[in-house]
Design a protein around this nucleic acid. Structure first.
Lengths: 145, 145
DNA sequence: CTTTCTGCAAAAGGTTTGCAGTTAG
DNA sequence: CTAACTGCAAACCTTTTGCAGAAAG
């Protein structure tokens, strides 16, 4: 479990390293993502920040999220909508999610073997696969009856 | 390669069998999906039909698509947005897609073994997986250099 | 004939764009 | 000081809702 501060710091290093400015809005969005336990929408981020008196325009939040996704510091969750911080490092294969249909809890994982299998699958269909987008909907341990 | 007419007829059987009425709008949406070679949005369907002088309100299209997805006669493609007709039968595992990032061509496939592996994966993370959404973005044979 | 379905109008969300002013480096 | 970034206003696109009339079985 990496702390909120450490997560933000790590992301800032990536930003700086890629030539992006470290700004207050970017830090705030990163903080909100670090604190969120489920995928959050841009407006939910705005609300989270609002509770601690930190206003951000929603357009800014959209733009920051877009940047973070491009840098692989965050991901968009398609099944439920919303965004999550990335919790994995590089070189482990595509990032995948398991999402609880009850509480929205999400876990990110990666598996190179799975990627390889899927690439082969795609090849059989005449495709060269580049990205594997994969989300499982299910029930987490807490929500199981 | 199943013909357009046969596809529509097959879908109508399912509709009737489940107690839904066979209506003109539903037949039109099914026809549009059968003719489409890529995922199409509700408004694209409206436009396709418009070209042959068949008007449908977009709300109706949304509702028909929603029904077709519930009956597994169509699927929503998350990566690109839009809907496609289902081309697979039952009992072969989750339906997955490979989508060409260049031309949008899409192929549907299913693989029980993959499902099993993914379920195991999810179990390791404390989840009971129920549905696997899985789309690969890549390049189809025609679009490869 | 009755229930289901469609069209319309309108609203409700979600996301994007252009521009002027601000800020990080 | 300059390029990058943010806020605002407005537009745009997508999806949903409620209701009255139409159509399937």
């Amino acid at each position: 479990m990496v702390g909120v501060m450490a997560q933000i710091q790590g992301a800032l290093v990536v930003l700086r390293g890629r030539g992006y400015k470290v700004t207050e809005p970017r830090k705030r969005v990163l903080k909100a993502l670090a604190e969120a336990e489920k995928p959050v929408s841009p407006y939910e981020i705005q609300e989270m920040l609002g509770r601690s008196g930190e206003y951000l325009n929603h357009v800014t939040i959209y733009r920051v999220l877009n940047l973070l996704c491009n840098l692989n510091l965050a991901h968009k969750v398609l099944l439920r909508g919303g965004f999550v911080k990335c919790t994995l490092g590089k070189g482990e294969g595509c990032h995948r999610f398991v999402v609880c249909r009850e509480c929205g809890t999400l876990k990110e994982y990666a598996d190179k073997a799975l990627c390889a299998e899927e690439n082969e699958m795609a090849r059989d269909l005449g495709f060269h696969a580049e990205q594997h987008f994969s989300e499982f909907s299910g029930v987490c341990s807490k929500c199981q009856v």
